[in-house]
């Protein structure tokens, strides 16, 4: 009887820890669950806080949306791995609690920790003597960095945004339709082939790629 009670209590704790108490995200995601969105917002805050040397914070870069878009294009196995990575980080405080006095409850989920505790947790992962633990941290940072530094505002600030480039039309463009199209739908003909690239260096003051231009709010 006591054993069953213990099992029920543990199960209830597991359910509460894994699924309950997460706020509903402002926008529906294709792949991310509310708990993953909440974790990503917390991780974005800790990795790329506001008020730093960059023009926007991780939260302003809307990293959950970038990760959700990214998961859409990933093969299933990689999608699963990344979601497991998020789960691992969110729940690993159970085994690697945030340093500090017990009353600060450092074993709560990562997203439930305060900002200082989150930083302490990330520091512990990044400097762990366990190679695999450091590697897991690097994997999480890599995913979020790709989203953060892919954001047009950060790239513009760093003068690393891609430029507008008019692609010459080559024989290959006549041969191959766009991905997903039938060749009959390819409007290009041999007469559309243009002169190849002239090798003129890109103009550093030239217009940016349309997706990276600054748009008035």
């Amino acid at each position: 009887m006591i054993g069953w009670l213990l099992v029920i209590v543990l199960l209830a704790y597991a359910v509460q820890r894994l699924w309950l108490g997460y706020p509903r995200p402002a926008r529906a995601c294709e792949w991310l669950a509310p708990r993953e969105v909440h974790f990503l917002e917390a991780a974005a805050d800790a990795l790329f806080p506001s008020g730093g040397a960059m023009p926007i914070s991780g939260r302003e870069a809307d990293l959950p949306r970038w990760v959700d878009d990214y998961l859409v294009v990933l093969p299933r196995s990689k999608r699963t791995q990344i979601r497991l990575l998020l789960l691992l980080f969110e729940q690993a405080t159970l085994f690697f609690p945030a340093p500090g006095p017990l009353r600060k409850r450092g074993w709560r989920r990562f997203s439930a920790l305060d900002a200082e505790q989150r930083s302490d947790v990330l520091r512990a992962w990044s400097r762990s003597s366990l190679y695999l633990r450091r590697l897991v941290f690097m994997a999480l940072r890599a995913v979020l960095t790709m989203g953060y530094l892919g954001h047009p505002a950060t790239l513009r600030h760093l003068r690393l945004a891609p430029y507008r480039i008019e692609s010459p039309i080559t024989e290959a463009d006549v041969l191959y339709p766009r991905i997903g199209q039938h060749p009959d739908d390819n409007p290009l003909t041999p007469s559309d082939i243009t002169a190849p690239s002239d090798g003129v260096p890109i103009d550093l003051d030239g217009p940016l790629h349309p997706d990276y231009e600054e748009h008035p709010l």
Binding site: A46, L47, G52
Partner: peptide, 8 residues
């Protein structure tokens, strides 16, 4: 790094 250090 991470946080402000990483942003720097």
């Amino acid at each position: 790094g991470f946080g402000y250090e990483l942003q720097d």
